[in-house]
Write a protein that binds this DNA or RNA. Structure first.
Ligand code: FES
Ligand code: FES
Lengths: 141, 141
DNA sequence: ATATATTACTACCTTTTTGTAGTATTTATA
DNA sequence: TATAAATACTACAAAAAGGTAGTAATATAT
């Protein structure tokens, strides 16, 4: 699942950006909004650019925007890009080779729970988040 | 969820012990069976004793046995005892105060998936693992 | 042109997690 | 009683993750 803070930060950032309507997001602005440590945030942002999620422009008035359509970015993609280990496809009892090799006694029921997660994660795109956010805003009026 | 290798090791160990019928499990034996680094395993075993899952006897022929009934140990208990951070009750978008404070847009659907996991984890005791294991053995005959 | 506001790069520091080493203690058995 | 096979304790080492610092590069605005 989500093992690292970095992944969490990434989801925070992308989720935030997806639900607002700014033309451009500078690291400094995101830092103030999201309270993620400045320099670490910067690094993560260039990382997200290298991974093709964002597009950066240097210089004054520079910042970050999405490099692709929001429909193309689902949460599972973000997570699996940033997480070093695949915690989802890991045996819950800690035995190696879940799925491929012989399954452990928890395998079936655990798979059921996990596939529900994966389903949600891979079916939720940033565009969905945006839509949901705007709907929620309207409801509150 | 399961963030640390240590937690994974713990589940491996307890799951293994629960499904076999030895009178006593020495660190050396478990090391050979489970391939967990010797010294680290030892430490984890005394840790599991301190947490009340196991009971140790020193000296020759010593080793570890369960300190309570298998019915009393569910997987969620093991995980929450060993994990430093509560990864289950964490906002998936990385915002703070999931549950207590105002929920994010993913909250409801994410909760649904998580509660399924927690349900499975907390409803599965080591006794269940043992039963399942033995049933599986019979099926294979 | 110069100052300013931005990202990019590289190296380092700190904390947490994982793993190792040495020595002491306990206890059964020969 | 000596030996061997265990756990217990404490400190250290290595690796990974999280976070910081300095400086270079880029582009806009004045
Ligand atoms: S093998 Fe254990 S969960 Fe799949
Ligand atoms: S507040 Fe985000 S998942 Fe609960």
């Amino acid at each position: 699942m989500i093992r690292n803070k970095t992944t969490e930060y990434a989801l925070t950032i992308l989720g935030f950006m997806a639900t607002r309507n700014e033309d451009m997001y500078s690291a400094e602005y995101l830092h103030k909004q999201l309270n993620i440590p400045r320099r670490y945030l910067r690094r993560l942002l260039t990382d997200l650019s290298k991974h093709g999620f964002l597009k950066s422009t240097s210089g004054r008035n520079g910042g970050f925007v999405f490099a692709k359509d929001l429909e193309e970015i689902n949460l599972d993609l973000v997570i699996s890009t940033l997480e070093r280990y695949d915690a989802i496809n890991t045996c819950i009892l800690g035995f190696s080779c879940c799925i491929v090799d012989k399954p452990c006694i928890m395998h079936d029921i655990w798979m059921e729970a996990r596939s529900k997660m994966v389903e949600i994660l891979s079916n939720t795109t940033l565009a969905d988040l945006k839509e949901k956010y705007q709907m929620d805003l309207i409801k509150k009026l």
